[in-house]
Design a protein around this nucleic acid. Structure first.
Lengths: 344, 344
DNA sequence: TTGTATGCGTTATCAA
DNA sequence: TTGATAACGCATACAA
């Protein structure tokens, strides 16, 4: 069992010694600040290369400078909306010179709080927080330590921060409006568990908005709740079916559930959209992979992620404490799981 | 533009002062080492709580102790195999007390090297490296600095490390064997781009193995290459179709491509598995969401991720430099896109 | 233009 | 059982 050779020991001192200058000079060169003669600079650079010197980020951070890393908290990575978001965030952050510490909260409030604390301890320069929407007293650590945070995807009621979100309520209304435009009237809705995420309730509200706009009566029996997942969609649809609820279309509040829903309807011999129209939410990549191609609502994830990172970086680098808010509008994606608009 | 209040300033000194002891005592208490009287300990704990003291990890790291974080490099997060892997890795790492710095390499060798360097600079305690399989001289930084690394998913030829991988060649052979057992003989294969990943070539080799075992002639014309993605699957299948190649089944070397393939076949009026059998690889969640449910090969991702983290943590904590190797066996998942076995 | 000395928050050494 | 003090590697105020 040979041991690894001890971790690198070449410090700024070694470079200074080799270049025959003081550490002050080396420091200036490394940080690309002027005040160093060209001759010295050249010698320092040479020494740096020869010694393969790399500055110790810990020591820098200890001196009060930034760690050049941000934290990212998301509830899940298996929900297909998140991978594209994570990708664009990691990418944008990297371009801006920050690395990304990933935390997955499983949508549990205490875990969110605990991860927030962890990230603060790790001295990340800022945090991108895709919260479930609930408030936890542990969140106050952000205030106490002054750690910049941008809450993404939705807002946390009662906890004022900078926000970058998508209008879930509007998106849901757009989806249901579309169903109504294609002649549907008996519209069932698939929701996630009550306590899961505030986004769910926003989408529920949008559903009701659409109904109200078109003066369609809301019926509690047309609401089915399950997990926000494929299995949840299957279960909720079966529930609808076995309860003998009358419906001509379904608004599933996320794509995974919508796909489970479609699967179940097809398994029951129903045609889509012939017998039942189905519309999802999120426009996950799968949406255009399944048959029939799923009509859905797209959140502008790329824009969204870039905006979130840029907003956070601005907060970090200016040291400001402004509570701005950006709300993106979703976009309706009409594909094959819903009929075409009537008349009009 | 109000500025944020300056970051927390409560240090070990403040605690010592408040508790009326020296920093030595506080340090011992914080690190749960003995040699402190109960009376002192109680006072210190009280002060810690009152002051909301939290140790500065940077200072600790500077003193040579670990950063309690690991780096994770993956080529993509949008390929559906990775989210479950990332999840289990983040989770296991967190349980072991490590946070995860995520880097997405886009499958580019230079980016892999650059991210390796970044992670080393960030002083992560170890790196989980899902490499594309190619070698880059930048990898040597791991050697130079003695940073523990576990290469996961596949091996890097010519770069000896600790490895946790899945036998891609065997998995591919299992898939094609299954096709053959169900009576198929004219088996086409969908591959990713040549330079993309060594896993692709391993799976290609497994395909040839199966053919050879059953004394079926290998025909170059039955090979189609595209991106390892839905779009790639569509393109490759169209290629096969327009070239008029004869085939009774397709082995798509990943699930996304398989789904693109199925989409294309169905769009061309072919029945699955009636006319053409299709088998994928990876058992991504989508595999069981589409119709027909996709037969595929599953890599034991959960086990795999746990094993990878544990192996890395062991390397980190023991300081050993052993080059072990663990190879997991894949599992055949027979679903509805292939026929049932004949005779036997 | 360059060097010296100090401090950042910890842990570890060595006395007391 | 404790305390004072020296590193750790770097940035910087102050001197030269």
């Amino acid at each position: 069992m040979k041991k690894r050779k001890p971790p690198r020991a070449v410090t700024i001192k070694d470079v200074a010694r080799m270049a025959g200058v003081s550490i002050w000079t080396v420091s200036r060169v490394v940080n690309e600040r002027d005040g160093v003669s060209e001759a010295s600079e050249a010698r320092v650079r040479q020494a740096i290369k020869a010694l393969r010197y790399r500055p110790n980020i810990m020591a820098r951070a200890l001196k009060g400078r930034a760690t050049q890393s941000i934290g990212l908290i998301i509830p899940s990575i298996e929900n297909p909306v998140f991978p594209p978001l994570v990708k664009v965030i990691e990418n944008t952050a990297a371009e801006r010179g920050y690395s990304t510490v990933l935390c997955i909260s499983d949508g549990r409030l205490e875990k969110e709080a605990q991860q927030l604390e962890l990230l603060v301890d790790k001295r990340v320069d800022g945090i991108l927080f895709n919260a479930m929407g609930g408030y936890h007293e542990g969140f106050e650590i952000l205030r106490e330590t002054g750690t910049p945070v941008v809450v993404i995807g939705r807002k946390i009621p009662g906890f004022e921060t900078t926000n970058v979100s998508v209008d879930n309520r509007l998106g849901a209304k757009m989806a249901v409006d579309h169903l109504i435009r294609t002649g549907m009237r008996k519209i069932a809705v698939l929701l996630g568990q009550l306590e899961a995420s505030s986004a769910i309730e926003d989408r529920f509200a949008g559903y009701k908005d659409a109904l109200a706009t078109h003066e369609i009566e809301f019926r509690e029996e047309r609401v089915a709740r399950g997990n926000w997942s494929f299995a949840g969609g299957v279960a909720a649809t079966n529930d609808l079916l076995t309860r003998g609820v009358e419906f001509d279309s379904i608004f599933a509040s996320n794509d995974s559930a919508a796909i489970g829903c479609i699967e179940t309807l097809l398994a029951n011999g129903l045609r889509i959209p012939g017998d039942i129209s189905v519309i999802g939410y999120d426009d996950a990549p799968v949406a255009s992979m399944i048959r029939p191609h799923l009509s859905t609502v797209r959140a502008p994830n790329a824009l969204f992620g870039v905006q979130a990172v840029n907003t956070l970086v601005k907060l970090v680098e200016t040291g400001e404490d402004a509570h701005s808010e950006v709300v993106f509008e979703p976009e309706l994606m009409v594909r094959d799981s819903t009929g075409s608009a009537l008349g009009s």
